[in-house]
């Protein structure tokens, strides 16, 4: 049993932290909060793999957060994410620290892989390809019609001969 515990502690895994920041902090303070989060991760022995700056988004539904016995409702938020490698023993510490931060509405820690998992950009290309293929089909039809005319002419020439 002891050996197993030690192995669990030694494991370093790739995690992703997705988070929503409150919109009231303002555009100019977003990089500050973002920098602080990165510092917090590196101070806990984490190695940042990739990340994205928090961007203002419209939330799909209204969120509630109670801070100092006051209910705050949010319709917009700054959404950002960080992918990092960290020891599995430190992740709980990170969770506790982010929990106490008043700038976060919500956050989500997930186990993930090092590679880029976002595939949306690839699809736009595929859609374009599909569109071009449909156009090609149209062109083929035109070509066929031209061929028919040519064939008609040839037949007429044959009949005349």
């Amino acid at each position: 049993m002891k050996n197993n515990d030690e192995e669990v502690e030694v494991n370093s895994r790739v995690y992703e932290l997705g988070y929503l920041l409150i919109p009231t902090i303002g555009e100019e303070n977003v990089p500050v909060v973002y920098g602080n989060l990165k510092e917090l991760i590196t101070s806990l022995g984490g190695e940042i793999i990739s990340d994205e700056m928090p961007k203002m988004i419209f939330l799909a539904y209204q969120m509630l957060k109670v801070t100092q016995n006051v209910r705050n409702r949010f319709d917009t938020a700054y959404f950002g994410w960080v992918k990092f490698e960290m020891g599995s023993d430190k992740i709980l510490e990170l969770k506790k620290k982010v929990d106490l931060d008043p700038n976060f509405i919500r956050f989500l820690i997930l186990k993930t892989v090092k590679e880029n998992t976002i595939a949306a950009k690839r699809f736009i290309h595929k859609d374009f390809k599909r569109k071009t293929s449909t156009k090609k089909d149209g062109e083929n039809e035109e070509v066929v019609s031209i061929n028919k005319e040519e064939i008609d002419k040839e037949i007429e020439a044959m009949v005349a001969a």
Binding site: T112, E115, T117, A119, A120, R122, K126
Partner: peptide, 14 residues
């Protein structure tokens, strides 16, 4: 079919 190995929660369009 589109060679997606990891389904990401951020890929909202998909």
């Amino acid at each position: 079919a589109n060679n997606i190995k990891h389904i990401d929660y951020k890929d909202i369009e998909i």
